[in-house]
């Protein structure tokens, strides 16, 4: 599904937390329709990298171009660009004081200025796609982890994003619920959504990714198609990592 159009261009991205250098200069390009899976040991900087892409963490150096605009530029309105970048978190982060339906329509109504009826119709359509239409009136606390994460994904989709960022979307789930969330993500990839996914699910990486990236000590240790990446890793750190997780 990968096209030639570049959606996100990252140039020499650096991130320090005080004296700790988490990202030491990452450069890459993400093409429209591409599914990029990022793996790495905990503390390697992979989640930080993902979170800098929509500036939830503000990088201390480098540039991020999203649809041609440098979003690290202080003068741009980051909120407008974030609307086009859906984010799914490890801990779901659904709004507990709102029904599922309202979780999904809040953004479209307040930010995209859609009518309530239109936003709700779209939300119901999305809920149907992930098999949760009957839970529209429920509250997040009444859902299982897997259901919550599926809602979190469609909540992000309701904003019609151009890219979806996933920060370890299955890590907080009970094992039997991982599959249902991965299935939603697979369908999303099939529909041509550009996705950046930080995950420990190597099966997902192998099956769905167009490119797999190994981040290690704040730099890109190795990257390539899943075939090259898993069959013939060159970086010794990656070999070591794969031997532990596969």
């Amino acid at each position: 599904m990968t096209t030639d159009e570049i959606l996100i261009k990252v140039e020499d991205l650096k991130m320090d937390f005080g004296p700790v250098k988490v990202l030491k200069g990452i450069s890459t390009q993400i093409k429209k329709g591409e599914v990029l899976v990022i793996v790495g040991a905990s503390g390697s900087g992979k989640s930080t990298f993902l979170r800098t892409l929509n500036l939830l963490e503000e990088p201390t150096g480098g540039h991020i171009f999203f649809e041609g605009v440098d979003i690290t530029d202080e003068k741009i309105d980051i909120n407008l660009h974030r609307q086009k970048m859906g984010t799914v978190f490890q801990q779901f982060n659904l709004f507990p004081h709102m029904s599922i339906l309202y979780n999904m329509t809040l953004g479209p109504i307040k930010l995209l200025k859609k009518s309530k009826a239109e936003a709700e119709a779209e939300a119901m359509e999305l809920l149907k796609r992930v098999g949760l239409a009957d839970r529209a009136k429920a509250y997040p606390s009444q859902l299982s982890g897997g259901q919550k994460q599926r809602v979190a994904i469609v909540r992000a989709l309701a904003m019609h994003p151009d890219v979806m960022l996933f920060d370890e979307p299955t890590s907080a789930l009970d094992p039997e619920m991982v599959g249902e969330v991965l299935d939603v993500m697979k369908n999303l990839a099939k529909d041509g959504m550009t996705m950046v996914v930080v995950t420990h699910e190597m099966g997902f990486a192998r099956e769905v990714a167009d490119r797999v990236m190994f981040i290690c000590d704040g730099v890109i240790g190795e990257e390539g198609t899943p075939q090259e990446f898993f069959a013939s890793p060159k970086n010794p750190r990656l070999k070591d990592f794969l031997s532990k997780v596969l």
Binding site: R82, Q83, T87, F89, N93, F95, G107, K110, L111, A156
Partner: peptide
Amino acid sequence: VDKGQFEAGRSLGFNYIQTMWYI
């Protein structure tokens, strides 16, 4: 309130004040 709530609001595109007010 969990920090993730704030981040979820901001990641949808709400500004600081909207995130505070709605979420």
